[in-house]
Amino acid sequence: MASAVEKLEVVFRKALELPPSFDVKGLEYQQQTWDSVAHLRLVTAIETEFDVMYETDDILGMSSFEKAVETLKRLGVEM
């Protein structure tokens, strides 16, 4: 049973179209394929996977994988 963080890593790789083994833990916005267009796709994918709804500030503030983990914790997901 994958942990929540592992699930988030999968979401990141899929939304950013990165290879299955890519280490996304240290990834930041504007690195690799993570541009503005991908950013919104990523947000939608996370919202769907974890059944949460991002506030504007959550979207604007999610500048890294780590921040995404924090955001999910704040939205009540056990990370």
């Binding site: 541009d35 503005s36 950013h39 919104l40 500030d57 979207i59 604007l60 503030g61």
Partner: peptide
């Protein structure tokens, strides 16, 4: 910064 960032707004 792009317009999906807090810094832009």
């Amino acid at each position: 910064h792009g317009l999906v960032t807090g810094a832009f707004w």
